[in-house]
Design a binder for these strands. Structure first.
Lengths: 151, 151
DNA sequence: GTTGACCTTAGACCTAGCTCTAAGGTTACA
DNA sequence: TGTAACCTTAGAGCTAGGTCTAAGGTCAAC
């Protein structure tokens, strides 16, 4: 049976975070001392590790709550439910990656278009591009190319 | 000269957002009526469009504040400063992409490892993987492969 | 028996970028 | 003259996941 500071040391999560997770229904100390101190048994600890692992993969606390309710009653739940949660998360991640890759492309095009030197910014291609609103239709590359700014 | 609702219609930003940007020093209505109504002239509007464009590329409001102070006095600033802001943003975006791709890989491996069918979740590979904490050392793939869960 | 390290709770604060509300003043039109 | 649609401000609320504080109780060691 671990006290909260011991569990904190073991898991790398702060005591604050452990209490925060408890408040949100993710974890629990199955025993409390008379004075109210939390004591975590082996099963409690495994649950905390589960949460930590799921968090590190990127699951939200809400996702994890769903995964935990499957975990405590696996007979009543199917692999399909688990993969659905995972698939949704993957879709979300893929969506974010796409957004970021679009930004990445635009930023790279901007960088390629500018000399980046100590010249005065009066004809800076990046500033011009931002001013000319060349990014209206996700058509950044062709717009910038049309503007003659890309090597 | 446009009133705030007209500028809102023109830019697609809400009046709330325009006031919010003003509060944060990004934009301004260079004229106010006697009763305090904001009136935006052509230069004001171009500045708002600049902000909108920069936002759509992913620059933060703080980045944009920096870009704007370059924009109003291009003689005192260099291309180097502009590319530095852009480069920093690109680095940030690349960092996020890497994180997300790591999640993506892990999630894909999890999905590949599970049947995803109506079977009871009692031997669900995903649940097992989360329980066994196979993700400790960014060594997800080999750990999962070692566990014999990957096709 | 006292010190210092630990524990408890409720609740405030943080980021970033909005989004909305309340309470009231202005304007345009019929 | 009325009313509806607009405008103003200050400030609260939202998301997500913590992070921290205050005020107080407990515990173990010296």
């Amino acid at each position: 049976m671990l006290k909260i500071s011991e569990l904190s040391a073991k898991t790398g999560l702060t005591a604050h975070t452990l209490r925060f997770y408890e408040k949100h229904g993710l974890i629990q100390a199955s025993t409390r001392s008379e004075s109210g101190y939390r004591y975590y048994n082996a099963a409690d600890i495994r649950r905390v590790e589960f949460v930590k692992t799921a968090r590190s993969i990127g699951f939200s606390l809400e996702d994890i709550n769903q995964l935990l309710s499957i975990r405590v009653d696996k007979l009543s739940h199917s692999c399909q439910e688990v993969t659905e949660i995972t698939r949704n998360k993957l879709d979300e991640v893929n969506g974010k990656i796409n957004e970021l890759q679009s930004m990445q492309q635009t930023l790279q095009i901007l960088l390629d278009s500018c000399c980046g030197g100590p010249e005065r910014a009066i004809h800076c291609s990046i500033m011009e591009a931002l001013d000319k609103d060349l990014f209206r239709n996700q058509d950044n590359e062709s717009a910038l190319q049309a503007s003659g700014r890309v090597k």
